[in-house]
Design a protein around this nucleic acid. Structure first.
Lengths: 192, 192
DNA sequence: TGATATCCGGAGTGGCGACTCCATATAATC
DNA sequence: GATTATATGGAGTCGCCACTCCGGATATCA
């Protein structure tokens, strides 16, 4: 009498998650569950057995995504140059979101509204970004008068961008300049 | 034998457009046509008579929106302070997009893909923003080494933001700082 | 006010997509 | 290899929504 999930079931669950990330990433959250099933080489029922609801599937995909990003952010906490680390993560997340288009859709979104698990994972990511930011600020690479909310907002905004990579990169540089500490006594144009 | 549209029909068309902008703005483009009809105090058939397709309705709403924004941008071309004019328009568009949430969805989007009329209106807006930018640059309020594509990308990105107004405002200030000319010989932190 | 071209409302229709049921298959255990 | 708890697939159900049809208004004009 086996109490654990059968290994084929586990494998299916994994493949479904992978495919779901790909499909929802490419076609947006509006993609049909049936397509996920088909591309995973599995019946629809199987999808619904593992994830009782389409929303649950979406959420599972999300959580995994958040967690991965958080891990990457945390890994960068050990980097030599805190300024580059911060910018690299920013760039990485934005580029990555461009691929998985419509996932970042509601995902990175204004987090924390509902579903416990997703909200938790989202907060984890947010905290990791906060740490990255603080470290960059301590190192003098990012000005001290900015705080997480607006930085995270910028991150989310930029990650939903859907232009070609080059334009995105240039736009990012502008944002980085806005975040940078001004050295040498210079001052930016007056703020109104 | 009247050849022009009956005045009640014209009025209905107008009300439908208004309501559609509101409904799609509030609930996203996924809102049902029936809701638009109901809130406009009109039968569904009437909506479809004026706009043969839901997509056509969406597009009509969009075009109107683009045109209005373009007009506002053009009006600001006569402003005294080109820098403030540029920033004001940026702020205005972002705030406005926050209200009409899911309209800016695919709208401001990476314009110019398909539907002739919408693409045209979108280009009109883009050009107007370009003029505003150029004027701000000539006045020394915006650095010379940025160009329309990345600025427009920033505009689109920020307009899809959905946080509270204050955070959005702070994020915008960061972007403006990134766009600003640095005075007094100061230099920003090295760019990698 | 009467004639008529134009509009209108709301009950269909068709398709799509989320979710369920159950007869069949297969991994796990002996 | 036999037994059995666990999984599986795909046909079927149900509701939602874009879009159509048509008998009945209503504006327009004389």
């Amino acid at each position: 009498m086996p109490r654990t999930q059968r290994v084929d079931a586990q494998a299916n669950r994994g493949r479904i998650l992978d495919v779901a990330e790909e499909v929802f990433g490419a076609s947006g959250a509006a993609a049909s569950t049936e397509e996920v099933a088909r591309r995973a080489g599995v019946g629809i029922a199987t999808v619904f057995r593992h994830f009782p609801t389409k929303a649950a599937l979406l959420q599972a995909v999300l959580v995994r995504r958040y967690d991965r990003l958080r891990e990457q952010a945390e890994a960068l906490l050990g980097a030599e140059d805190p300024g580059s680390a911060f910018r690299d993560f920013f760039r990485h997340l934005v580029a990555d979101a461009a691929t998985k288009i419509a996932i970042g859709e509601a995902l990175l979104h204004a987090g924390g509204d509902s579903d416990g698990e997703a909200a938790q994972a989202s907060n984890g990511l947010r905290r990791a970004v906060g740490a990255l930011l603080q470290r960059a600020q301590r190192a003098g690479a990012v000005r001290d008068d900015v705080e997480l909310p607006e930085v995270y907002a910028l991150l989310v905004a930029m990650s939903r961008l859907a232009t070609d990579a080059e334009v995105t990169a240039r736009a990012l540089e502008i944002v980085f300049d806005g975040l940078a500490e001004v050295t040498g006594g210079g001052r930016r144009t007056v703020r109104p």
